[in-house]
Nucleic acid binder design. Structure first.
Length: 523
RNA sequence: GGCGGAGUAGCUCAGCUGGCUAGAGCAGAGGAAUCAUAAUCCUUGUGUCGGGGGUUCGAGUCCCUCCUUCGCUACCA
C-alpha cells in the first residue's frame, strides 16, 4: 500500500490577549476548507492552529483582570477552541506556546541557531518607560515640557540599553533573496511577495530576539535572565506540532509545512524572519506563505467606537455556520480584503444556496419521491444534453484543483456553482414535469441524471459547507466512504434502484424579521 | 519622499504574452413555465474601458504624462 502524500497547513496563532473576532473566524474557516479539500483529494492532512500566550501584554492584561497570565491564556484558549467547534473548523492540534512541548521545541531551535553562530548577546537601545515597562519607537513619542520626551501614555521615557540576544538576520539577506527567486510561489499572492522582496532589498539589520524586562515566556537556554521574544517563540509553534526536535515521531513527516495561512499584517514575520531562522537551524523551509486580506463591515474596519463589532459566534448563530462559511469563501477573493454586510450575506445564502442549489435538490428529489417510488431511477440511454451536464460535473475536481493550487477558494466555488446553474438550465429545458405525462421513462432518466449531478456537486462542496453537503449526500444515499473526490466520476455514479430517504430542505431561505429586529452584520 | 498595486456596465469584478461587433454574477425591466424553499428558465445594457498624448494596419491590453485611490517603507501579536 502506497503512502498517501502528506499535507501540513496551519493558521496563524492568535495572541491570547483577547477574544476571537471576525478575522480569526475567517482565517480558521478558510484554512479548514483548504485542509478538508486536500483530505478529500486523498492527502494525509495535518491541520494545526495555536495560541500565542506569552509576552508582556499578557502579563499586563492578566494583571488588569486580576488573574494570572496562565489563567488568561486558558480562558482565551477555551474561547478559540469553542470557535473552532462552532465554525465546524476544528484543527487536528492546537499548539499553545505555554505548553512544555513548545518550550522544548523553541529551546531546541534556539540552541541550534546558537551553534550555527547566529545568536549573540548585545544591547537593545531605545526609549524606555519605567512606568509602562515598555520600549517605544522614536516616532511614537510625544514631546513634553522643556524638550523632554514622553511615552504615548504620557509617562516619561529614558534612553536605555537593555541587554538582549540578537539573531544575525543581516547575514541572511542574500540567501533570502535567492530563495524567493528560486521559489517564486513561496509567497502568495504576488503583491505580498513584491513587498517582501522590496523590504529585504532595502537591507536587513539583526533582530532582537530576547527580553529581560519581563519573564512571561520561554527561558533562553543557558541564560535564565532572558525569555525569548515573540519572533522565535511564536513562529516555532509550527514546528512544535510536528514533534520537533524529535524527528522520529509520526508527525515528523509533515515538516516542512505546505502552507502557513496568515493575515497580511504578519507577512514579514513569516516570509522573512521564519525562513531565516530555519535556514540557520538547517531545517527545511515551508512551501508557501498564503496571505489573506482583512474583512470590513460595510467598508469600515471594526471598531468599538463605530459600534460595528460583531463576534463570530453571533454571526454563526444568526445565519447558520454553512451560510457564513460559504459567504466568506465565495464573496471575498482570497488574498484580497473583503466586505461583509447583512444584505450581502442574505443575498448570497438565498441566491446561491437556497435558490440555486437547495431548490434544485428539492425540485428533483421530490419528483423522484413522488414519481419514482423514492428510488434512484434508471439512466436509460444518455442524450447529448445528459452527457454534457454529466461531463461538466465530472470535470469539477480538475477545475477545483486548479483553483485551489493558487488558493483561489472563491474560484473553486465559482466553478462549482457554474455547474449548479447549468444543472438548473438542464432541468428547466428538459422539463421532466412535462415528460411525466408524455414519456415517463425519459422523465426518470432526467431525474437520474440530475441526482447524479447533485451527487458530484455535493462531494465537491464538502470542504466549504461540510454539514449541508453531508446532508445532501445523505439524501442521495451516498455511503460515508464514497464521498471523496476520487468518487467524482461515472464509475461511481448512483445505482438505480437504491432507496432514497425522504426529502428535506437543506438550505433554508433567510427571511427578514420584522423591522427593527437585530441584524448582526449591520450591527 | 521611495517602491508597488488599482481605477472596465448601478454594484462586485473577469479580461494571459495587443486583433472578430468589450464580458460574468448581482441588482433593474419584460416575458415563459409551474416540478420546486414564489425557488427556476428566457430576453434585455447608447459602458468616454480614470483624463490627455504617443507607438501600431489595429490598444482596457504596449510607451509617456497627469489625476484619484490603496498597500509597503521592521522589533507592535
Amino acid at each position: 500500500m502506497t503512502a498517501r502524500p502528506s499535507f501540513y497547513v496551519t493558521t496563524a496563532i492568535p495572541y491570547a490577549n483577547g477574544a476571537p473576532h471576525i478575522g480569526h473566524a475567517y482565517e480558521r474557516i478558510a484554512t479548514d476548507a483548504i485542509a478538508r479539500f486536500k483530505r478529500l483529494d486523498g492527502f494525509d492532512v495535518l491541520f494545526v492552529t495555536g495560541m500565542d500566550e506569552h509576552g508582556q501584554k499578557m502579563q499586563q492584561t492578566a494583571a488588569r483582570d486580576g488573574i494570572t497570565p496562565q489563567a488568561l491564556a486558558d480562558r482565551t484558549a477555551e474561547q478559540f477552541a469553542r470557535m473552532g467547534d462552532v465554525l465546524n473548523a476544528r484543527a487536528d492540534d492546537i499548539v499553545r506556546t505555554t505548553q512544555p512541548r513548545h518550550a522544548k521545541a523553541s529551546q531546541a531551535i534556539w540552541q541550534k541557531m546558537v551553534e550555527r553562530g547566529d545568536i549573540y548577546l548585545s544591547k537593545y537601545p531605545g526609549w524606555y518607560s519605567v512606568r509602562d515597562e515598555a520600549f517605544f519607537d522614536e516616532s511614537e513619542l510625544k514631546s513634553g515640557p522643556n524638550g523632554t520626551k514622553l511615552a504615548p501614555t504620557g509617562a516619561p521615557v529614558e534612553w536605555v540599553e537593555e541587554e538582549s540576544y540578537y539573531f544575525r538576520l543581516s547575514a541572511y539577506q542574500d540567501k533570502l533573496l535567492a530563495y524567493y527567486k528560486a521559489n517564486p510561489d513561496f509567497i502568495v499572492p504576488e503583491t505580498y511577495k513584491r513587498e517582501v522582496i522590496a523590504f529585504v532589498e532595502r537591507g536587513l539589520t539583526d533582530l532582537s530576539i530576547s527580553r529581560s524586562t519581563f519573564n512571561w515566556g520561554v527561558p533562553v537556554p543557558g541564560d535564565e535572565r532572558h525569555v525569548m521574544y515573540v519572533w522565535v517563540d511564536a513562529l516555532t509553534n509550527y514546528l512544535t506540532a510536528t514533534g520537533y526536535p524529535d524527528m522520529t515521531t509520526e508527525r515528523a513527516k509533515f515538516w516542512p509545512a505546505d502552507a502557513h495561512v496568515i493575515g497580511k499584517d504578519i507577512t514579514r514575520f513569516h516570509a522573512i524572519f521564519w525562513p531565516a531562522f530555519l535556514m540557520s537551524a538547517e531545517l527545511p523551509i515551508p512551501k508557501q506563505i498564503v496571505v489573506h486580506g482583512f474583512l470590513f463591515n460595510r467598508g469600515e474596519k471594526m471598531s468599538k467606537s463605530v459600534g460595528n463589532v460583531i463576534d463570530p459566534f453571533t454571526l454563526a448563530e444568526h445565519y447558520g455556520v454553512d451560510p457564513l462559511r460559504y459567504f466568506f469563501l465565495r464573496e471575498v477573493p482570497f488574498g484580497q480584503d473583503g466586505n461583509y454586510s447583512h444584505e450581502a450575506i442574505v443575498n448570497r445564502m438565498n441566491a446561491d444556496l437556497a435558490n440555486d442549489l437547495g431548490n434544485l435538490a428539492q425540485r428533483s428529489l421530490s419528483m423522484i419521491a413522488k414519481n419514482c417510488g423514492g428510488q434512484v431511477p434508471d439512466f436509460g440511454a444518455l442524450t447529448d444534453a445528459d452527457k454534457a451536464i454529466l461531463a461538466d460535473a465530472y470535470a469539477l475536481p480538475d477545475k477545483a484543483r486548479a483553483a485551489m493550487k493558487d488558493y483561489a477558494l472563491h474560484h473553486a466555488l465559482a466553478e462549482i456553482w457554474r455547474v449548479v446553474a447549468d444543472a438548473n438550465r438542464y432541468f428547466a429545458s428538459e422539463e421532466p414535469w412535462i415528460k411525466r405525462k408524455t414519456d415517463e421513462a425519459r422523465m426518470a432518466n432526467i431525474l437520474a441524471v440530475t441526482a447524479e449531478v447533485l451527487r458530484n456537486i455535493a462531494i465537491m462542496t464538502q470542504p466549504f459547507i461540510p454539514d449541508a453537503s453531508g446532508k445532501l449526500l445523505d439524501l442521495l444515499a451516498v455511503a460515508g466512504d464514497a464521498r471523496s473526490f476520487a468518487q467524482v466520476s461515472e464509475a461511481h455514479r448512483l445505482t438505480p434502484g437504491t432507496a432514497l430517504p425522504p426529502t428535506a430542505p437543506i438550505f433554508p431561505r433567510y427571511v427578514e424579521a420584522e423591522e427593527g429586529a437585530a441584524k448582526p452584520a449591520k450591527a
